[in-house]
Amino acid sequence: MTNEQPAIQVTDLTVAYRDKPVLWDIDLTVPGGVLMGIIGPNGAGKTTLIKTILGLIRPAAGQVLIYGKPYAEQRRLVAYVPQRSSVDWDFPASVLDVVMMGRYGALGWFRRPGKRERELAFEALARVGMQEFAHRQISQLSGGQQQRVFLARALVQDAQVYFMDEPFQGVDATTERAIVGLLQDLRAAGKTVVVVHHDLQTVAEYFDWVALLNVRLVASGPVAEAFTESALRATYGGRIAFLEGRCSGAGAGEPRAGIVVSS
């Protein structure tokens, strides 16, 4: 995959719930090989943006291209990690079963997962440090373990572009660090990773690219350029406070330990 063509190109995208716009005229270009955080307050449309890019929500206007083609033609290039809470973890399946589901797309209709899929699933579980849980029932996992399983399921898809919806939601610090490490490995391997993220404190540390979203796209680009105080103010409105001296406009891109968002 050449890096000259953008991995994701969103143009004039509007998504509405009846007459209430959830996303207003988004133009977003994400180059290949970046690790991007989508940041914005609750109700900003972060999850909606990902779901629309994946064709799960039909836009009112606009289009999305993955490496120059509509998503439906590029499914094999894309992996998706939905929010952990979107599935029923009491479903009768083992960890290995769930991870193998990541191979279903490559298998297509009718073909059954076999030995090769099991091997790939074991490999992916090893990468997320969960191989000894392979035969566990998924309901016995902690939140962090569930998230690792979801990540392993995305890894076996062996995609070019990864979309992850709140992978750090409700996971312990160890898991969060492990996941960040894996995401950075993916980027190092030339993959594009898009993550819906909540914690402003860690943006500069985790990501090299950022999109600030609040129904409209406020800013996007390299963290050093787009993650500025004025863009954050525009995204979060009055609900954000910058602690004096911790965040200077000149030092954009430095970790902003002093950002406080009140909800």
Binding site: L56, V78, S86, V87, D88, F91, A93, R153
Partner: peptide, 8 residues
């Protein structure tokens, strides 16, 4: 188990 992934 996961209708969203199935659709994607």
């Amino acid at each position: 188990f996961d209708a969203a992934l199935a659709a994607a």
